[in-house]
Design a protein around this nucleic acid. Structure first.
Length: 545
RNA sequence: GCGCUUGUAGCUCAACUGGACAGAGCGUUGGCCUCCGGAGCCAAAGGCUGUGAGUUCAAAUCUCACCAAGCGCACCA
């Protein structure tokens, strides 16, 4: 079944076509939006206001002309359309929503699977933390968001690849190796100190203990041992968190294959690199960056930007239409130069989509937990998972939009009360399951029956039917805006609908088989969208509490 | 000093990208347990959208200037 919004849109377009001077309205000129209050119907459009302005006409008159045409067309799904203040309000027949419920029932939910995105390849690069320390909660939020976004885009029909870019070369790894070596020496009773700007976290002491039985080692050994062990820990944490990657790609591979050097020569030939102060600069300022950036330092070594350019060339060559980079706010200054790189490499800068995920502040009740990565005082993602669990963590990370700073209260996340939205969700989920199970246990036989939705007249039942039908619209909004939190909010709305309905009306009544069946079908459809939404957000809920 | 993000009910946050009287949850106050799990439901109170101007039929949303918080401003990532 076609999305009700699309059907209204097509109808409005047709009505426009019947009015002289308004033929061939552009796609974006007609937007159909959910109404904000009941007296405005189910949906409304401001198309008349916009179109009239463009053409210096009276919006009121245009709106009522349009409405006249709509009335002539008499679409079966519309109860009425009326004009108010130049807006056109649409009142949809409730039967449309129940038809949809019926479809969900008959297809066992597969009608909910509706690709709406068209064929497009999307690369989502996220987390990409250096293997120099355990993942932090900042990475956790990025991981939770990236995974959910990937699932939703895939659901909508995109081809999606989740990728982790591994900085496994360079100064940071050296510093890490030296820090580990210092810890190792200390454990063996020798004088040694962590290098300037080195890593002081306790995790290196733990790692050094594992090395205790080894003899004196070369520096390279420490570099490799430290980064490989830490990477192993990162992978374990991600597994515990339920986040997976389709592809791991190493910085060193671009250096080893020579693609960095080749690319640098090409850019030199194109005049995009120049020599100054015995180092090579990328002309990023010509593409919107505030200044040019060094790619080869005066000592001859490469900056990270050099390999990043090679990496993004690689992304483009693999044929992705959209490049999503999920990063923390501390890297936002890096965006203009990467965008410049994408542009000179022949990619479309419009499709380069950086998403900045703002920081999370942890609270324990009222107490703010301060964090410093360098000193090694922080709550790692692993500690968070151990304390509040992966599912509650993921929900809290996801249900705020990415560009707002997040306050995460550990006490709240663990509370078993309705202050905690995760419990509210769980309870709704369990209630639905319980109803369905209860009905089954009663052994009522519905075989051969068709649900009669005309029996469902309660306000709460109509609300549920509308919410279920709204699922595809929510998915569509997420695809357009990358606002994953919209789906989390939708889940809370569904939960509210469940609790409210449950409180007022009994679903399973042995004496009234017809209405029981219709209600069960409704609850089942609701359960179906509920489960799918959870799956898209990568959150699992227990079957009982 | 410059740049990015944020500022909305007591608290945590929405507002479908410029739409109608700015909405939820928690908290507060007052009601609901014969009956599928009351870990719930219903109702009320609560707002000059940080401040001040501007753009237009229409601004929380766009422009400018201030104020406040966070983060950046390297031949570090």
């Amino acid at each position: 079944m076609k999305n009700i919004k699309i059907r209204i849109k097509e109808m409005v377009r047709e009505a426009f076509n019947k009015l002289p001077g308004y033929e061939n309205m552009e796609e974006k000129e007609i937007s159909i939006m959910p109404a904000s209050r009941p007296e405005f119907g189910d949906f409304y459009t401001n198309a008349a206001l916009k179109a009239a302005k463009e053409r210096n006409a009276s919006p009121q008159k245009l709106a009522s002309d349009l409405c006249g045409k709509l009335a002539e067309m008499k679409p079966d799904f519309l109860a009425k359309a009326e004009v108010k203040n130049g807006f056109i309000n649409f009142f949809v027949n409730n039967s449309v929503y129940f038809d949809f419920i019926k479809n969900v029932h008959e297809s066992s939910g597969s009608v909910l699977q509706m690709p709406c995105a068209g064929e497009k390849k999307v690369l989502i690069e996220f987390v990409s933390a250096n293997p120099t320390g355990p993942l932090t909660i900042a990475h956790g939020r990025q991981a939770a968001f990236g995974e959910a976004l990937a699932r939703i885009l895939k659901y909508a029909g995109f081809e999606v690849v989740k990728e982790y870019y591994l900085n496994d070369a360079g100064r940071q790894i050296k510093l890490l190796g030296q820090s580990l070596k210092a810890r190792y020496m200390q454990l063996n009773g020798k004088e040694a100190s962590i290098p300037e700007e080195g890593y002081e976290g306790e995790y290196l002491i733990e790692l050094a203990k594992k090395l205790k039985e080894f003899r004196e080692q070369e520096d390279v050994f420490f570099d490799r041992f430290a980064s490989e062990s830490i990477l192993g820990g990162i992978k374990e944490d991600l597994r515990a968190f339920g986040v997976t990657f389709d592809s791991w790609i190493n910085e060193t591979s671009f250096i080893r294959e020579g693609s960095v050097n080749r690319l640098i020569e090409e850019l030199k030939k194109k005049g995009l690199l120049y020599l100054s102060d015995s180092s090579w600069w990328f002309k990023s300022s010509a593409y919107g960056d505030e200044k040019d950036r060094v790619v080869i330092k005066s000592d001859g070594s490469l900056t990270y930007l050099a390999t990043d350019i090679a990496y993004h060339e690689n992304k483009i060559k693999r044929g992705f239409d959209t490049l999503v980079n999920i990063i923390g706010p501390d890297h936002h200054g890096y965006i203009p130069r990467l965008k410049a790189a994408v542009e000179v490499l022949g990619g479309n800068p419009e499709n380069f989509t950086p998403i900045i995920v703002q920081l999370t502040t942890l609270y324990r009740g009222k107490e703010k937990l301060s964090m410093s990565t360098r000193k090694g005082q922080f709550i790692s993602l692993r500690q968070l998972i151990d304390e509040v669990g992966p599912d509650a963590s993921k929900f809290f990370f996801i249900f705020r939009k990415t560009d707002s700073h997040l306050d995460f209260d550990l006490e709240l996340a663990k509370k078993k009360s309705l202050e905690n939205p995760v419990y509210y969700l769980q309870y709704a989920y369990v209630r639905m399951k319980h109803i369905l199970k209860f009905a089954e246990e009663k052994g009522m036989d519905f075989s051969g029956m068709k649900p009669d939705f005309s029996l469902l007249k309660e306000e709460e039942e109509i609300i549920i039917a509308k919410k279920v039908a709204g699922f595809s619209g929510i998915v569509e909004s997420v695809v357009q805006t990358y606002g994953v939190h919209l789906l989390a909010e939708y889940l809370l709305e569904l939960s509210r609908a469940v609790h409210s309905y449950y409180q007022k009306h009994r679903v399973v009544n042995e004496g009234e088989k017809d209405i029981t069946f219709a209600r069960l079908v409704l609850i089942n459809a609701l359960f179906e969208v509920f489960s799918r939404s959870l799956e898209l957000l990568n959150i699992s809920l227990p079957d009982s509490m």
